[in-house]
Amino acid sequence: MRLGVALPVVTAHPASSNAWEAAAGIGEISSIAAAADALGYHHVTCSEHVAIPADVAAERGGTYWDPLATFGFLAATTSQIRLATNVLVLGYHHPLEVAKRYGTLDQVSGGRLVLGVGVGSLESEFAVLGAQFADRGARADDALAAIRSAFSTGRPTHDGPFYSYDHIVVEPHAAQRRVPVWVGGRTRRALRRAVELGDAFCPFALSPEEIAAMLADVERPAGFGVVLTTGRLDPIAAADSALRQLNRLRDAGATVVSATIASSSADHHIEQLESLKNLATQLDIEFTPPEESVT
C-alpha cells in the first residue's frame, strides 16, 4: 500500500479544512507539497470545481484551486511526488483539452501526472457551465476513451458516440507511456467504468465495508488499484486512531490511501506528515526513496 496526501488549502471543504487554511496560499501549499515529496509520499491531490452555486458552497465549500495551475507550480518545486487530480470532472471539458493540457503537465513534471476523473454530481454547476448533465455517464465513458487515445500519441484518432476526430496533431502529449487514471464514484457503474477504462477505483462517501463488498463482486485486472481516503488524522496526538484508520482501509482493499491531516498551521501539518510516515512504516506502507525515479 502507498500513502499520499490530500493537500490542504486547495479545497475549503467544511468537513476537512483546518482553520488556518483560510488565510493560507501558494507558499503554504508549496512547502507542504515539498515536505511530502522529501518524505517519499506517493502523491498529493487537488480537486476540481469551477463555479459552485452560492447556496451549495456552505455544504461543499466554495474554494477549489484549479488543479492544472496548482500542479504546474508544484511541478517546479517538487521532484518525485505524483500530482493527482481528485477528481477532474469529465463533462466540463472536451477530451482533447484534457489531453493537451494535462499531457503538457505530464511533460512539465517529468511524467508525474495521475489523472483522477469523475462524471460529476452537481447539476447546478453543469447548468452554469452549459454542460450536459442527463447523459454525463455515457459522455464520460466516451471522453475517457478519447483521452486515452490522445495521451499516448501526438496524432490521436477516436470515433465515439459523442467525440470523433482524425487527422489532427496534439502536441505535446503525455510523457508517460500510460498515464495512471483513477476513476471516482460511489456506484457499481463507476466501479465498472474504472475496471474497463481506468487503472484504479477511487470511491467516495462509502464506508470501507461497503467498498469491500463492491470490490468482492467484480473481477479486476492484475495491478488494478483501489484508492481510498482517510478521515482527519492526527498522528501526533492520536497515533492509535490513525493506525486503526489505515489498517481498516487496507483491510477494505486499498492499494493507495490519500490522507487528510488535522493541523493548526502549515508547520504543524508538516510535523504531522513526518509522524504519519513513522507510524505508517509500522504497517509496511511503502515510501519512495529520494533517489527513486517515478517514470
Rank of each mutant, 00 (worst) to 15 (best):
161 P>H: 14
164 S>G: 09
165 Y>Q: 06
166 D>T: 14
166 D>Q: 12
169 V>M: 15
170 V>C: 03
170 V>G: 01
171 E>V: 00
173 H>T: 01
175 A>S: 06
176 Q>H: 11
176 Q>W: 13
176 Q>M: 09
180 P>G: 04
181 V>R: 04
181 V>G: 04
185 G>K: 09
187 T>E: 10
189 R>T: 05
191 L>V: 09
193 R>Q: 07
195 V>E: 07
195 V>T: 06
202 C>Y: 07
204 F>C: 11
204 F>M: 06
204 F>T: 07
205 A>N: 14
207 S>E: 00
210 E>F: 06
214 M>K: 07
216 A>K: 06
217 D>M: 04
217 D>L: 07
218 V>I: 11
221 P>T: 06
221 P>K: 00
222 A>Q: 07
223 G>F: 06
224 F>W: 00
224 F>G: 03
226 V>S: 04
229 T>W: 15
231 G>R: 13
231 G>E: 12
233 L>Y: 12
234 D>E: 08
235 P>V: 01
236 I>N: 08
237 A>F: 08
238 A>T: 11
239 A>K: 05
241 S>F: 14
241 S>Q: 15
242 A>Q: 14
243 L>F: 09
244 R>D: 12
245 Q>H: 10
245 Q>I: 01
246 L>V: 05
256 V>P: 03
257 V>M: 08
261 I>H: 04
264 S>E: 09
264 S>H: 12
266 A>W: 04
266 A>D: 02
267 D>Q: 03
268 H>M: 13
268 H>D: 15
